[in-house]
């Protein structure tokens, strides 16, 4: 009996399904399982209940890292959205040389977070960098020593991150602005509504789905924010700029605390699930509006 094309189609999906079930779901369950064991270098299967979670939550480094997830994430997403929106609106004003500006605003998105971090670390270095330059202009007391300050080093991550990703928001929102029907603008002019009010009350609400899209893309960068931290601050000074992604990798591969790292990874996953549920709500709200 010949194999039907339908059966072949189903068969083609088998490798991917296997890869997904084992690679994703198997790994996730395994990690969750490990989070209930006292594993150090190698996995052990002894049940330790919530011990690892208790230890994790009382670890100061984790508290800092987890807080940073929200501090960095909130500022990064907020500034990216604001800057991206401003740039998109600016470019929507019939600007000359628009594609040149667009190319400049968007190129950092082609670079890795490693390259981004290394470039900004060099730019912000206190001896020959930006601080030195501003001082040489006559502002002797100018201080931009962000990298060596435990309270402020987190802002270097925000600056470099926004530099990297604001263009992405711009390009998505600009496409949205361009797709707004010219009739709507004409109607606004006929009614004598100023342009800025048209943006605020008519056009921007139409961009809502695209804003949610940006939120998802930026949010994933935040959760995965490992590379930028490694290249720019190394998590320091101390562990003041640590993030969960780095905490987990360090504890798996350098500090040999597999159980603790697994507990941290599980909490990170839970956080992502909760955030996605929130984004889902936002999306529905946008559709209802």
């Amino acid at each position: 009996m010949a194999i039907t094309p339908q059966a072949t189609a189903r068969f083609v999906l088998v490798p991917t399904i296997l890869l997904t079930v084992v690679g994703y779901y198997g790994s996730i369950l395994w990690t969750i399982g490990l989070s209930f064991t006292p594993s150090r270098i190698l996995p052990v299967s002894r049940w330790a209940g919530l011990d690892m979670y208790e230890r994790l939550l009382s670890t100061e480094r984790w508290q800092v890292a987890y807080t940073n997830l929200f501090v960095f994430g909130g500022l990064y997403i907020g500034f990216c959205l604001a800057a991206g929106l401003l740039l998109a609106i600016a470019l929507d004003q019939g600007v000359k040389g628009r594609s040149v500006y667009q190319t400049i605003f968007l190129y950092p998105i082609a670079l890795s977070f490693i390259v981004t971090g290394l470039a900004w670390r060099w730019l912000l270095n206190p001896t020959t960098g930006l601080q030195d330059y501003v001082r040489s202009l006559g502002f002797e007391s100018f201080s931009l020593d962000l990298l060596s300050s435990p309270e402020r080093a987190i802002f270097t991550l925000v600056i470099a991150g926004v530099w990297h990703s604001a263009g992405l928001v711009m390009v998505i929102l600009f496409a949205g602005l361009q797709s707004v029907d010219q009739e709507i603008w004409r109607a606004g002019r006929v009614d004598g509504i100023p342009r800025h009010r048209m943006y605020r009350h008519v056009v921007l609400p139409m961009l809502w789905p695209m804003v949610v899209t940006c939120l998802v893309l930026l949010g994933m960068n935040v959760v995965r924010s490992y590379d930028l931290v490694v290249a720019l601050t190394g998590g320091g000074p101390g562990f003041s700029t640590d993030v969960p992604a780095k905490f987990i990798v360090d504890h798996y591969f350098e500090r040999q605390s597999v159980g603790l790292a697994s507990a941290a990874a599980t909490l990170l996953l839970l956080t992502v699930v909760v955030l996605f549920a929130l984004v889902g709500l936002l999306r529905r709200r946008g559709e209802a509006a």
Partner: peptide
């Protein structure tokens, strides 16, 4: 099933993958 993988942080999968 496949798309869930696009949104899950890698950190929760890397160690088991290393073991495998």
């Amino acid at each position: 099933l496949l798309l869930v993988g696009a949104f899950v942080p890698y950190q929760i999968m890397i160690y088991p993958l290393v073991r495998m």
